[in-house]
């Protein structure tokens, strides 16, 4: 090796070393560039997977590219880095917003699902309720049928009950009629009380086919009632005297009514009135064994029932001293 060659090598070696070092320094990547490029990769991946934030991703890409391409010694490099960072930030926020929008949609679907589930459940409850009612109804029908067959078994009893019901219905209607008449009678009753006393005082006996007869007019009873009026009870002296005029003779007390009201009712009423007179006589000291009370209803009128006067005469109690030995016993 000659001197010239050695000399050339002498400053070539440091030159190569320096340039290698310089290259190494040049090649050492800017950590900010690396970081931003990695961030961009994540943004691109997420934006692709959500299919959203396209514009923001593009803006971030451009800003980062501008920063990467800028001269490391350029004055505006810091500014470019700032813009790149902010754009990356915006893109990341847009990607998160897309995810949140998807979440909102999912929540809205969930809400619909909840409402659907609730309405399904309600429908199921309604169905069960309907089924319960149907079964209940079925049970009632069976019960009714059972009761029906039972009542058919006792058809005769039912028939009887029906007849009875009809009877009591008639009785009720008769009573209603009687009551309306009673009202009319009540209006007359007050003035009648005086004449009743006079009438009872002036009672006289007559004789007919049955024997000696004394007739108490219907006025001695309150209208529709079987009990003697108090004033009549107090003035029975003439009747008692009549009965006791032959103390051993049997006495028949016959109750009569007019033709208004049902036969049944009239029968019952006439019987009761006759019994009331009998009881009054017993109370006055007449021997009960001599007395027989019969109800003859409306069947033996003494006059026509067409007029009020006629009906008044037909309402009566005949006290008959039976001629001959016709004692009730």
């Amino acid at each position: 090796m000659n001197r010239a060659t050695r000399l050339r090598l002498g400053w070539l070696l440091p030159a190569v070393l320096i340039s290698t070092l310089a290259l190494a320094v040049e090649k050492a990547p800017d950590p900010n560039v690396v970081r931003l490029q990695e961030r961009l990769q994540v943004i691109e991946r997420d934006a692709a997977s959500t299919g959203a934030a396209g514009r923001e991703r593009l803006q971030a890409q451009q800003a980062i590219a501008a920063f990467v391409a800028s001269n490391p010694k350029a004055k505006d490099r810091a500014h470019l880095r700032f813009i790149a960072e902010q754009r990356a930030e915006v893109a990341e926020s847009a990607i998160r917003a897309a995810a949140l929008r998807a979440q909102v949609l999912a929540l809205e679907r969930e809400r619909d699902q909840i409402l659907l589930e609730a309405s399904r459940r309600d429908a199921e409850q309604a169905r069960q309720e309907a089924e319960r009612l149907r079964l209940q109804n079925l049970a009632r029908v069976e019960e009714t049928q059972r009761a029906q067959s039972l009542s058919e078994q006792s058809a005769a009893a039912a028939q009887a009950a029906l007849a009875e019901a009809e009877q009591s219905r008639q009785l009720a209607s008769a009573r209603a009629l009687e009551a309306s008449l009673a009202k009319q009678e009540a209006e007359l009753a007050f003035s009648a009380a005086d004449s009743l006393r006079l009438q009872l005082d002036s009672l006289s006996a007559r004789r007919d086919a049955r024997g000696e007869v004394m007739t108490l007019s219907g006025d001695v009873f309150a209208p529709g009632q079987a009990a003697l009026r108090p004033e009549a009870r107090a003035n029975l002296a003439r009747v008692v005297a009549f009965v006791q005029s032959e103390p051993t003779t049997a006495v028949r007390i016959e109750g009569h009514t007019d033709s208004r009201g049902s036969d049944n009712l009239n029968q019952v009423l006439s019987q009761r009135r006759a019994e009331a007179v009998r009881d009054a006589l017993i109370a006055e000291g007449v021997d009960g064994a001599r007395l027989q009370a019969v109800g003859l209803g409306e069947n033996q009128p003494v006059t026509d029932n067409a007029s009020e006067q006629g009906r008044a005469r037909n309402r009566r109690v005949d006290v008959v001293l039976l001629s001959g030995p016709q004692a009730p016993r």
Binding site: H79, Q86, V90, A94
Partner: peptide, 17 residues
Amino acid sequence: ASAALVQGDLALARAGE
């Protein structure tokens, strides 16, 4: 102005988020 624009964008994005 460009910084204000990008920060305005960021404020907009974060408000939406």
